[in-house]
Design a protein around this nucleic acid. Structure first.
Length: 813
RNA sequence: GCAGAUGUGGCGGAAUUGGUAGACGCACAGGACUUAAAAUCCUGCGAGGGUUAAACCUCGUGCCGGUUCGAUUCCGGCCAUCUGCACCA
C-alpha cells in the first residue's frame, strides 16, 4: 500500500492488537525513562508545539528501545488550571466536562501520531485518584514544617480575581490577561523552597542540562554573599541592614527602610509623622508596574530618626523609600551614595551628603558613583586596604562587638501555592474555632472538589460559596469547623507527576518507594524552555523534600534535559490566533499521513532551535517517502530477476561504507536529538542504494542487508511507514522489535580516501589513497604524487605538515 | 542595565578534538520521457574573473583585529536580532 493515513491506521491497529508498546516492568534490560512534559488540555486539539515536542521525542524513545533499553515512556495530562476555568467562565461549560472531553480528544490524536506510549500508565491531575496524593504530599510537607501559612503582600490580578506567583507576573502585568498587578495582603499557603536554595544551586552541577537553563535557575535562586550590619538608632530601635559591600561602611550617609517595614512607625518622630504616613499611603496604592518601572525617579521621605554608624559613630538620617524592597534581605539598606548607583541618584535628588571611601586600585581618577572594588580611603584604620580585605576585616570587627555578621541572601522566595480558584486540588486543611488549623486526616483523603459550584470570580474563592463543601466537623474535637477554600497552584500537581507514572494505579500510596527508586529519576526529559524557572525548579524542590521525608532516595528528578525549539508562523513570528499565522497539523496529517509530518518537522528544523514553518518542505518529504517506496519495489524486482555476484568490489565497498557511515552518524545524531542530520544520512543511504541497483551485476547479499538496514534505521523516525515497507520486504515481525544496527569499522573505512593537499592552508587538490595501507605507505604515495612534487619544485618551501590520514599542508614563503 | 542564545548560498540548514566550507533537502535552470502537462529520472547550481570548453585564479561563514602552517570553530573588541531577569543593596 502506498503510504497515507490508511497505512497509519493499519499499523496502529496491529500494534494495539499485539500490545507492542506494553511496558515490561520485570524486564532485565537496563531501564530508560523517557518523558515529555505532559500536555495541558486547554484545547481539544494537539497544536504544532505539541507535535514538535512529542513526535521527535517519541522517535528518540523508539530508538532507545531498539538499542536494547527497557524504555518507559508514559504520557498524561496536566488538567487543573486557569485556562479551563476561564473557558468555563466564558462559555458556561463546566471545567471538568471540557477538560475530560479535551483529554479524550488529545489522547486519540496522540495515538494517531503513532506515539509509543503505554497508556496503562497514564494519569490526569484533575482526577481524585491523582489529586488525593497531591493533597497527601501537601500534608507531609505541612507536618514537616515545609508548608506554612502567612499573611503576605501578594500579586493580585483584578481581572482574573486571583493571586499570582511572582513567576506569573510579567513586567508587572498578569501573565494571562495582561492587566496590571496590584499588591494586596492575604493569608496564603507557602512551600518552604528557600530551605533548599543552596542545594538547588549546588546540584545544578550534577545535571546534564542546557547551560542556559542552569543559568536561569542560578539567577532565579540569586545567591549573594554579604554581611548583616546592625545600626543603633536615636529612638532606641535597632536596624539591621544587608550589604554585599561592608567595605563601604564608612561611606554611609543615610539609612533607608522599605515603606512596609514594621520599624517605620517606631522610628518616625512626631514632627515627620504626617509626611511618612502620606508617603506610605501613596506607595501602597502604586501598582507593581508603576513601582518597578525602570525609569521611575526614586522617591522617599525623611523619618526624623537617626542611625548610628557602628564603625565610626556617625549619626546619619533614616529615610524610607520604595526603591528598598521589603521582602529582600532585611528590608533595610545602608546607603553609600558614592559607591552605589541607586543611592547616588537618591542622594543627589534629596541633597544628602556623598562620602567617597573607595578609590580605584590603579590610582586613576574615579568618577562617582564608583561601584567597582578598589582601595579604601577616608576609612580610618581601614585606609589602604583593598575592598576584598576590608570586607572581611570590617565584618570580623563588627562580629566581635555583636554588631554584624557574615550572611548569605537568596532572591528565591518561598513558593506561594494557594489560589482563590475553583479548578484545582482543594487544600486539605480544616479551620476549627477551638483547635485552629487542623490538617485533614490522611484516611479522609481525598478532599473532593465539589462539582456544583458557582465558579465565576468575584474576589472570593469559589469553594467558599459551597456550604456543603465548607462546613465540616473538626477531626480533633468533633465540633463545627470550616474547610480551607483555596486550591493548590497547578505547579504543585506537576511537581511530582513523574514520580506517579511508574506506579500510576497505586491506590494505597502516592507511589511505592521501591518502584520509584527503580524507575526514577527520569533519564531524558523533553520540553520547552519556558519552564526553565518555574516547573523545573519546583519539581527539583519536591524531589528533594520527599527524599528528606524518606519517600524516595535520589536527589534530582531529571538527569538529562532537552528543550525543543519553537516552530514559528510562516511569517517568522510566534504563532498566535490573533496574528492569523497558525498552522493546523490535522490538515497535513490527513493529506500526507502522520509519518510524513513527523519526518518533516524533524528534518526541516534544528530541533533545539525551531524556526519558521515552511509548507514546501512537507511536499518534499512526501516525495522522499515515494523514493523509498520505489526503492523497495525495485529491490524486490532486482532481487528476483538479476544475476547474483558474490564479488565485493569497489562499488560494494562504497555502498557498505555509506551504510556504516549512516548507522554511525544516525546513532550519534538521534542520541543528541539532531534529527535533521540523522534524516539526511538516511537519504544518503537510500540514494546510494538506488545508484547501486542500477549496476549490471549486484551482490544480492550486500544489497539485501543494506535495504533491510535502511528500513530499520527509518523505523524510529517514521514508524508506520517503516512497518509497511518491512512487510513489503517479506518480513513477518514488527520492525520496531528489530535491533538497532551496529557499525562495522571495517566497512566504515571503505576502500579509499581522499587526502587534501593544501598550499599555505588552501586546498589545491586531493590525493586518493587506499585505506588498507600503513600510514608510512600513505605518506610515500602523497610525497611521490606528481602534483605534490611539482608544488615543491615551483615554490620556496619552508616545511610540510602532515596530519596522518587527514591533511597534507605545504608551507611556502 | 544584567545574563544567555543566535548570525554560514535565493531558502531550511550541514561541517569530529582547529584540518577539503556549504552535507542533506528546497527553490531555480537545462536535459530525458510525454502530443502536452504532472509525476519520475539525469545534469548544473556561493560570488566574481578566466577559457570555444576545461584547467585555473581571486574573494567568501555579521564587522574589525589577533593566535596558527591552517580559523565557521580559539582569543580580544564591536554590530544586529531574539529570549530570560529586571531598583536584590
Amino acid at each position: 500500500m502506498e503510504y497515507s493515513k490508511k497505512v497509519d491506521e493499519k499499523w496502529q491497529k496491529k500494534w494495539k492488537e499485539n500490545n507492542v508498546y506494553k511496558f515490561d516492568k520485570n524486564s532485565k534490560k537496563e531501564k530508560l525513562y523517557c518523558l515529555e512534559m505532559f500536555s495541558y488540555p486547554s484545547g481539544a486539539k494537539l497544536h504544532l508545539g505539541h507535535w514538535f515536542n512529542y513526535a521527535p521525542a517519541d522517535s528518540f524513545a523508539r530508538f532507545k528501545k531498539m538499542q536494547g533499553y527497557n524504555v518507559f515512556h508514559p504520557m498524561g495530562f496536566d488538567a487543573f488550571g486557569l485556562p479551563a476555568e476561564n473557558y468555563a467562565i466564558k462559555t458556561g461549560i463546566h471545567p471538568e466536562d471540557s477538560t475530560l472531553k479535551n483529554i479524550s480528544a488529545m489522547r486519540k490524536q496522540l495515538e494517531e501520531m503513532g506515539a509509543s506510549y503505554d497508556w496503562d500508565y497514564t494519569l490526569e491531575t484533575c482526577m481524585p485518584d491523582y489529586y488525593k496524593w497531591t493533597q497527601w504530599i501537601f500534608l507531609q510537607l505541612y507536618k514537616a514544617g515545609l508548608a506554612y501559612k502567612k499573611e503576605a503582600p501578594v500579586n493580585w490580578c483584578d481581572s482574573c480575581k486571583t493571586v499570582l506567583a511572582n513567576e506569573q507576573v510579567i513586567n508587572g502585568t498578569c501573565e494571562r490577561c495582561g492587566s496590571e498587578i496590584k499588591r494586596k495582603k492575604l493569608a496564603q499557603w507557602f512551600f518552604k523552597i528557600t530551605d533548599y536554595a543552596e542545594e538547588l544551586l549546588q546540584d545544578l552541577d550534577k545535571l546534564d542540562w542546557p547551560e542556559s537553563t542552569k543559568k536561569v535557575q542560578t539567577n532565579w535562586i540569586g545567591k549573594s554573599e554579604g554581611s548583616e550590619i546592625i545600626f543603633e538608632t536615636t529612638s532606641g530601635e535597632k536596624i539591621t541592614v544587608f550589604t554585599t559591600r561592608p567595605d563601604t561602611l564608612n561611606g554611609v550617609t543615610y539609612v533607608v527602610l522599605a515603606p512596609e517595614s514594621k520599624l517605620v512607625q517606631k522610628i518616625t518622630t512626631d514632627e515627620y509623622k504626617k509626611d511618612v504616613e502620606d508617603y506610605i499611603d501613596k506607595a501602597s496604592k502604586l501598582s507593581e508596574i508603576e513601582r518597578l518601572a525602570v525609569d521611575k525617579e526614586k522617591t522617599g521621605v525623611f523619618t526624623g530618626g537617626y542611625a548610628i554608624n557602628p564603625i565610626n559613630g556617625d549619626k546619619v538620617p533614616i529615610w524610607i523609600a520604595d526603591y528598598v524592597l521589603e521582602d529582600y534581605g532585611t528590608g533595610a539598606v545602608m546607603a553609600v551614595p558614592a559607591h552605589d548607583e541607586r543611592d547616588y541618584e537618591f542622594a543627589s535628588k534629596y541633597k544628602l551628603p556623598i562620602k567617597e571611601v573607595v578609590k580605584s586600585k590603579n590610582g586613576e581618577e574615579t568618577k562617582l558613583p564608583f561601584t567597582e572594588k578598589g582601595i579604601l580611603v577616608n576609612s580610618g584604620k581601614y585606609d589602604n586596604l583593598t575592598s576584598e580585605d576590608a570586607k572581611i576585616k570590617i565584618t570580623e570587627d563588627l562580629q566581635k562587638e555583636g554588631k554584624g555578621k557574615k550572611t548569605i541572601n537568596y532572591r528565591l522566595k518561598d513558593w506561594l501555592v494557594s489560589r482563590q480558584r475553583y479548578w484545582g486540588a482543594p487544600i486539605p486543611i480544616i479551620y476549627c474555632d477551638k483547635c485552629g488549623i487542623v490538617p485533614v486526616p490522611e484516611e479522609d483523603l481525598p478532599v473532593l472538589l465539589p462539582y456544583d459550584v458557582e465558579f465565576k470570580p468575584d474576589g472570593e474563592s469559589p469553594l467558599k460559596k459551597s456550604k456543603e463543601f465548607m462546613n465540616c466537623t473538626c477531626p480533633k474535637c468533633g465540633g463545627k469547623a470550616k474547610r480551607e477554600a483555596d486550591t493548590l497552584d497547578t505547579f504543585v500537581c506537576s511537581s511530582w507527576y513523574y514520580l506517579r507514572y511508574p506506579d500510576a494505579k497505586n491506590d494505597k500510596e502516592a507511589f511505592n518507594k521501591e518502584i520509584v527508586d527503580k524507575m526514577d529519576p527520569v533519564d531524558v526529559y523533553v520540553g520547552g524552555k519556558e519552564h526553565a524557572a518555574m516547573h523545573l525548579i519546583y519539581a527539583r524542590f519536591m524531589t528533594k523534600a520527599l527524599r528528606d521525608l524518606g519517600y524516595l532516595s535520589f536527589d534530582e528528578p531529571f538527569t538529562r534535559l532537552v528543550h525543543q525549539g519553537m516552530i514559528l508562523g510562516p511569517d517568522g513570528n510566534k504563532m498566535s490566533k490573533s496574528k492569523g499565522n497558525t498552522v493546523a497539523p490535522e490538515e497535513y496529517i490527513d493529506k500526507y499521513g502522520s509519518d510524513v509530518f513527523r519526518m518533516y518537522i524533524m528534518f526541516g528544523f534544528d530541533y533545539k532551535q525551531g524556526g519558521p514553518w515552511d509548507e514546501k518542505g512537507i511536499e518534499a518529504m512526501s516525495k522522499y517517502f515515494t523514493r523509498v517506496e520505489n526503492l523497495v519495489q525495485n529491490f524486490n524486482e532486482v532481487y528476483k530477476n538479476t544475476n547474483d555476484s558474490e564479488e565485493i568490489g569497489s562499488k560494494e565497498k562504497e555502498l557498505l561504507r555509506i551504510k556504516s557511515n549512516s548507522i554511525k552518524l544516525m546513532t550519534e545524531n538521534i542520541e543528541d536529538f539532531r534529527f535533521n542530520t540523522a534524516i539526511a544520512r538516511s537519504m544518503e543511504l537510500s540514494n546510494a542504494i538506488s545508484d547501486y541497483m542500477k549496476e549490471e551485476n549486484v551482490n544480492k547479499k550486500v544489497l539485501k542487508d543494506t535495504v533491510d538496514i535502511l528500513i530499520i534505521l527509518l523505523a524510529p523516525l517514521a514508524p508506520h511507514f517503516a512497518e509497511e515497507e518491512w512487510e513489503k520486504l517479506g518480513k513477518t515481525g514488527f520492525v520496531y522489535n528489530e535491533n538497532w544496527p551496529k557499525v562495522s569499522q571495517k566497512e566504515l573505512a571503505g576502500g579509499t580516501k581522499d587526502i587534501p593537499i593544501q598550499l599555505n592552508g588552501k586546498l589545491k587538490f586531493c590525493v586518493t589513497v587506499s585505506t588498507e595501507i600503513s600510514e608510512q605507505e600513505m605518506l610515500d604515495i602523497i610525497k611521490n604524487d606528481e602534483r605534490v612534487i611539482k608544488l615543491h619544485e615551483n615554490n620556496n618551501v619552508v616545511k610540510d605538515i602532515y596530519v596522518p590520514g587527514r591533511i597534507y599542508n605545504i608551507v611556502v614563503k
